[in-house]
Design a protein around this nucleic acid. Structure first.
Lengths: 343, 343
DNA sequence: TTGAAAGCGCTAACAC
DNA sequence: GTGTTAGCGCTTTCAA
């Protein structure tokens, strides 16, 4: 690893001049610059970011914390962030928390040691507390929100998405619609639940809490909840299910299959968040799809814009509240109910 | 951000002592240690890794480069690596190349600036050239190999996996078996192709090159290749397909559906690499599954062991060649051919 | 336009 | 067992 001193020596200038030639080309005479550039090239010089960052007190680095990198949605968020960061000349360091408070704390501690200039986080119920580990760090909340005022949030319009999904089912003639909702300590779950309720109310139907079961967002939870809902006596059993996230939707579909219910004849299903398997399963699943990649990109763009403001000493812009629309994708997992309820 | 000097001042010791109290507790008197620890705690002190790494000339950081973080297999590799790195007290920085030479170069350059102590890479055809950007960096090749001698490789036994898949099809009675193989500049594609050929030969069948079509590993390529193979005249058309990676398998399944072929009656399919959609599609897909997470963990464990050797000045251990078995998971996408070939 | 010198935060070498 | 000093590689005053 050659240092800037090596480059300087080779170019017959001081380290200071070599540094300037590389980072502030216009502060240096034309031909000195060329000599330095040539020397750097020849040595394959790459600045040591540790030293540079230490000196400049800025790392051009941001942290990204998602809760489950194995979930395609989160992987896509992360990719959007990384691609955008790259475009801005920043490096994004990715961490994964598995929704675990301890892992989140450790990720934040590690991150802190590397002095990121900002953080994009998919928050968990612990995040608000854990963020005290990194005071004064510009934060963007992605996909979910903690309710922290003063931070920028980049989310999807969950309420409208859930409402559209539910309204679609109602439009098909369903009146007993079940919902499998995430744990209500997460904003997306709360909002999707709210959208569901709104659609029910708007259609003049009665909201039946017995048809709304919570889960911890995992496939297994979706399966168990669906099993319970679908085992209700026929006249109480929902004829359609709206499932609040993609993992639980898998479980719900599996549960329907286990019970020998065919989709959509015996049961309509709408999932939240599109995926490969939703497209290839039989029948293809009607879903509320989310612009995951754009979400990641926007989160990063906003964070970096904010960093620019801070750096240039301008007043910190008031925090943005970015919200992207979802899209209801109609496929074959929804149809009118066959047996009209007869209470 | 408090520095070690702040801690030292608060504890009434020198910075050096504070440093020792934190990193080498036994070099310091019991009660000084306590004072320092207390002060550190009180200030929420977190060492500045940039400064520490600069001074110690070791970052306890490794790089991870995968080709497609959106592919569940690669995401799982990355997670395995990160989890293992974490256990060893290392931080893994993840980059994504999309199989693109330029992105790979940029990732390596960025990485280099951050002085990783080692690199785990899923190599592409460009990697061998690009690795010149990071001379002397300990490397572990993951999933694929470049043929570089002297580097540790952690892979799966692709030959046996492909052979088992093909033998399974042959055992069911298939004699015209098509293969959709990846580009042959990637070791996994070459090996899976070899395994396919071996099984054909071992069964005394004739290898028909016309039934083997290459693709670029994308869904679209799988679809196009399958469309071509399945459009052959009935007596030439393969009754079974072995597809060399998971993305292309999606395409192949879609192609079969487009042509109205039902699986497994009209066409048996075996894919390489298991996935959510392979399990939930109809019928569930027979696949060769790979222990992706363990692969990632092993790659990291080996790399870090190697770093230990280097650091302790021991002779660099000869590079390991780790190879994990695959598993053929029989599901419902394979069955005996209905119409026995009549050439 | 360039060089000399200082210092970012940390730890290792060397006193004492 | 602890303090002093030096220096990792870089950039940024400050002088010339």
């Amino acid at each position: 690893m050659s240092s800037i001193q090596d480059v300087a020596t080779l170019a017959n200038v001081s380290a200071a001049t070599a540094s300037r030639a590389l980072s502030r080309p216009d502060m240096v005479a034309q031909h000195t610059r060329e000599r330095v550039l040539h020397a750097a090239q020849q040595l394959g010089y790459q600045p040591n970011m540790l030293a540079r960052s230490l000196r400049q007190r800025e790392t051009r680095t941001i942290g990204v914390i998602v809760t489950d990198i194995l979930n395609h949605f989160h992987a896509t968020l992360a990719k959007g962030v990384q691609d955008a960061a790259d475009r801005h000349g920043y490096t994004a360091f990715l961490f994964n928390t598995d929704e675990d408070a301890g892992k989140e704390r450790r990720a934040l501690d590690t991150l802190r040691g590397h002095l990121p200039q900002g953080l994009i986080v998919v928050p968990t119920p612990h995040t608000r507390e854990n963020l005290k580990l990194v005071p004064n760090l510009p934060i963007v909340e992605l996909d979910r929100v903690t309710g922290n005022t003063g931070v920028t949030t980049v989310t999807v319009d969950n309420i409208s998405g859930a409402r559209a999904a539910t309204a679609h089912l109602i439009g098909l003639g369903h009146t007993r619609i079940g919902m499998i909702v995430g744990k209500l300590d997460i904003s997306t779950a709360v909002e999707r639940h709210a959208g569901f309720q709104q659609a029910i109310a708007e259609a003049g139907l009665t909201y039946d809490p017995a048809l709304v079961l919570p889960g911890q967002h995992r496939e297994k939870d979706g399966r168990e909840a669906a099993l319970r809902l679908l085992s209700l006596p026929l006249h109480l059993r929902p004829t359609a299910l709206f499932v609040g996230n993609n993992e639980m939707t898998v479980g719900a579909v599996l549960a329907a299959r286990e019970l020998g219910l065919s989709i959509p004849e015996d049961l309509s299903i709408v999932g939240f968040d599109d995926s490969r398997w939703a497209q290839t399963m039989t029948p293809p699943l009607t879903v509320v799809s989310q612009p995951a990649y754009e979400l990641g990109v926007l989160a990063c763009d906003h964070l970096i814009a904010q960093l620019g403001h801070i750096q240039s000493g301008r007043a910190r812009a008031s925090p943005a509240r970015v919200q992207l629309p979802t899209e209801l994708i109609l496929r074959q997992s929804t149809a009118p109910p066959v047996c009209v309820p007869s209470v």
